[in-house]
């Protein structure tokens, strides 16, 4: 791919999704966008590139952004954050939230739904602990395609085997054709919405827990800082933020601080947590 062609895609992705791609990822453009070019009737990627130089169709741009978004995910990915959620965050919220109050959880960039559904299953498993709370899970992603898949709650045999313990599979899924359907009582616990992390979060309200794992790695430093700072404005004073195990906030934001010995878990810098009362 010519450098000037690369620039077109780099600029579109940056402006529309915040995705930051560097020249060494040019090969991804070929492999992921050739099917998009074919879909829109161009013989090759060059044809699509030519069309983008004119007045680009919004729908084409949407397909480009979706094709370039990485959707790697699986149930209970990395395990540790889910242990922390069940053993630290839920007991804390159960203790510190008033009876009947609503606890709001946000999964930013939820892809095909494995992360929010893993959380919904954990809520079911710990139902007694949070019986006095009303819990909402809001899951967002930029791509319509993965949101629709997520809403279906239908997973292939391969997908359910990546991370879902067999006891939970028996309890919360039913076989259907070649795959597994998540039971309605779990599926209905998650509300999927389309959302671009670059857009204003004003309509999103305030969250007690935010999962934003392995998303920021695709953005440049300035965008990372901006997203983290804006998330911090939408967190309860004693809310919790989960980032991916390999991610850090160092040099990006002063809004959050890492919790010692709880890798991947962050609280607001000036948080009002009663930290001593947290269980491990």
């Amino acid at each position: 791919m010519r450098i000037t062609d690369f620039d077109i895609y780099r600029d579109i992705l940056k402006a529309r999704s915040g995705l930051s791609i560097t020249q060494d990822k040019a090969y991804l453009l070929d492999s992921r966008l050739t099917p998009v070019a074919k879909k829109w009737g161009y013989a090759s990627l060059e044809g699509l590139t030519m069309a983008l130089r004119g007045v680009p169709d919004e729908e084409v741009i949407k397909d480009i952004v979706e094709a370039m978004t990485t959707n790697e995910t699986f149930f209970f990915r990395d395990q540790k954050p889910f242990d922390l959620f069940a053993n630290t965050v839920l007991p804390y919220l159960a203790k510190h939230r008033k009876k009947k109050s609503t606890v709001r959880i946000w999964c930013a960039a939820s892809s095909t739904g494995q992360e929010p559904y893993s959380l919904a299953i954990l809520l079911k498993e710990h139902a007694a602990l949070i019986e006095n709370l009303n819990v909402e899970i809001i899951a967002t992603d930029i791509a319509d395609k993965v949101l629709n898949t997520a809403r279906e709650g239908f997973f292939s045999q391969f997908e359910v085997q990546r991370g879902m313990p067999v006891q939970l599979l028996l309890k919360y899924f039913t076989t259907e054709g070649d795959g597994w359907r998540l039971n309605d009582d779990v599926r209905s616990m998650v509300k999927f919405e389309k959302f671009n992390l670059l857009d204003s979060m004003d309509s999103k309200g305030q969250f007690d827990v935010v999962f934003c794992r392995n998303v920021l790695i695709y953005f440049d430093e300035a965008t990372k800082s901006d997203i983290l700072n804006r998330i911090s404005n939408h967190m309860a004073a004693d809310g919790f933020l989960f980032l991916g195990g390999a991610e850090t906030i160092i040099g990006l934001t002063d809004s959050f601080k890492a919790l010692a010995e709880r890798r991947g878990l962050y609280v607001l810098q000036d948080s009002a947590h009663d930290l001593d009362s947290m269980t491990a």
């Binding site: 209970f76 395990q79 045999q157 391969f158 085997q161 990546r162 991370g163 313990p165 067999v166 599979l169």
Partner: peptide
């Protein structure tokens, strides 16, 4: 049985079950 793998399987599935 502690776990259950449905064939066909790959190294990712085997590994994730062993971790689990």
């Amino acid at each position: 049985a502690n776990e259950y793998i449905m064939k066909p399987f790959d190294s990712d599935i085997l590994k994730s079950k062993f971790v689990q």
